[in-house]
Design a protein around this nucleic acid. Structure first.
Lengths: 214, 214, 214, 214
DNA sequence: TATGAATGAGATTTCATTCAT
DNA sequence: TATGAATGAAATCTCATTCAT
């Protein structure tokens, strides 16, 4: 359970809380969390600044709640039919492509939320939260499953290392283009999203299937 | 020339400017740029806050100068014998390994500087500077050169696309582990730096040499 | 009747009022009245903040009620057999000792309550309440009685002045050690409570019986 | 050295500091420290609220400085000819009278300052400062000296205990009438200051010279 | 009636930037 | 020129008190 949030008993309260989160999410589309003031969030949500502090201990209290929100949406999504695309009835290449596509769409949809979480985490190396851990291990497990499933095709001789690299790769390769499009250099800007995703998947495919080192 | 810096013709002035940059770099080892106050920089450099404003017209003025500093070090380094490791007399795999190693070492050495630049750029999507462009195109050119050199080995049928992806890949794959080690999940923490770099290179190698799509 | 309290005719209301006072008294053990929030009192009493305002029209309204509470306990105590220790069948010195002992015990028992009342009164010189007046005159009368009773032993030639000084003395001499023990300097900390009380009584005894001024 | 104060190098700075202290002292004549806002102090001193924080870490930082100020004035005073009234060439009774008079005058002169210090200390039992210790031990030493000087006249058989009680007594007996005149009950209000001081001294004299306990 | 929610009105504090010596 | 002082403009947060259910 997120730390910065306070418990609530009334429905009006929940409404306010939701307005605040919605307001923050909207503001995050244009600014960094650090550049958004509590007064701004309150004004956007149509409540008083003091009301913010009934729901969140402090401004920082928003962060764990944002993470929860993101994880919940992730869970919702991963439970949805679209995400459950059968991986088993296709080739490794197709499977990787689907994974890449899913990751990319996630990032696109949760763009501002993720950017806020990402930047806040990276800007405050000291505040180490463990909220993301469950996601991370889930991703690792998924990669291990893939590798096990297509073991026949895969030439990498250290399966665990390969799974770890794959998880690391998928977790990072989308960030720049997905979260910070404007900053991104011109490299991939000629590629359509579809092409980009395909190349990303092929990158992984090549890694897993290349001729073993001599 | 960077925008936030003021021109100076006196050598004492330049000394102060250097002290300030040195001080800032030191402070960046422990905090984010946003959390460092001008007074702090001045105190660390042993000058008065007012003096800062004779060298930089705003606090933000440090940023382009930091970027210049970083690029200059990059140029120095790329002009050094170590960086000019002959790529021509080796296999593609070896070449990629050398590139990965060089990239990794750069990030390690310029760690705090890069982190500051990276985070600042990503946190302020509005302030679009063009300082990094020269680096970006240089990297792209290098990738194109590699691909041209080893064209025989490379199976990817769109060389330009491959070069762009390669540049994008090398530009991003090190960031998480290199700049934000503490935040990084456990995925790659079992790998030594050497192993990590090797896997990173192999990732690229696999991409370039995999069997073409059918 | 104290001003800040609202009249109430229902027994449930009285119960809540008592819970609130009990809660406040408990909180006063660790903090100054000014540092206790209405919300805190309400929470400790297990009621809502809004309910507090059905019993007390302002936070300040607690103060006169606290004073009433203190005076009531004082009355209860002074009506009890323990307090009615017969002063008449003993020497002046013994009588003073008993008075000192009684005063000291009172302070010990009503410690937090008294401290709150004392500090609040002293911190708000403007808000002059008359609640304490009855206590003050009672003490003066008691001193006059003592002096009259032992007139033979007493050398002070202005009985009224002596009674006033005695009342003033007993009303103040215990405060520092009794209410603010931690702050008190080391002076009397080597003395046991018993010794301290004895010295306090002797102080008064000496005053009343010393050889008259020449 | 007081903790809340910052060091300063310029004379303009000292001026501001002095204005602030002066302003605070003035405000303390009418309100408790807790009821005075930093903005008020700043406005009274004719500077901006932000300037306050260049001289004092936080609002609480005023307290140790007030204590220093008080102690310094005490030192100044005790070094002055008036305070050095020769105690040796008089009777014990006269000596005590002079001590009482000196204590009373001190309190009168430093009234607001002392009240602020006293109340703050008593309201924040947790924050134990040691600033007053030197004063306390000095007072004890003085009492011991008096007792030694007039040993012949003094009947109390435990000289150390007597000195401690005397110090405790003189340190507390003036507080109510001296610092909180308005609150004080009517007991001593019929006495002139002069009479009051005389009685206070006699109180001590009686204690020291009464016939020993049997 | 009783309550949790809401808030107006500040309080303290910070800091990039300018001023005055 | 170089500096320490000064400050305007916020930002975060608190809390006694009222509102609405």
């Amino acid at each position: 359970m997120s730390q910065g949030a306070k418990k609530t008993h009334q429905s009006r309260s929940k409404q306010t809380r939701d307005s605040l989160l919605k307001a923050l999410e909207k503001l995050l589309e244009t600014k960094d969390f650090a550049d958004i003031s509590v007064a701004e969030i309150a004004a956007t949500a149509g409540v008083s600044p003091a009301s913010v502090y009934r729901r969140f201990d402090k401004k920082q209290g928003f962060i764990p709640v944002l993470i929860d929100l993101y994880l919940e949406r992730l869970r919702e999504w991963s439970a949805s039919p679209g995400a459950r695309a059968d991986i088993e009835k296709c080739t490794l290449r197709q499977a990787l492509h689907r994974i890449a596509g899913a990751g990319w769409r996630q990032l696109q949809q949760q763009n501002h939320l993720m950017r806020a979480i990402y930047l806040h985490g990276r800007s405050h190396l000291d505040l180490l939260g463990t909220e993301g851990d469950q996601f991370e291990s889930a991703l690792l497990v998924a990669m291990q499953a893939i590798i096990a499933l297509y073991a026949a095709e895969i030439t990498h001789n250290d399966k665990d290392k390969a799974a770890a690299m794959l998880a690391y790769y998928f977790n990072n390769i989308f960030i720049e283009r997905g979260l910070f499009k404007k900053q991104t250099g011109a490299w991939t800007e000629n590629l359509s999203d579809q092409d980009f995703v395909e190349e990303v998947a092929d990158f992984a495919y090549g890694y897993l299937t290349m001729s073993p080192r001599t």
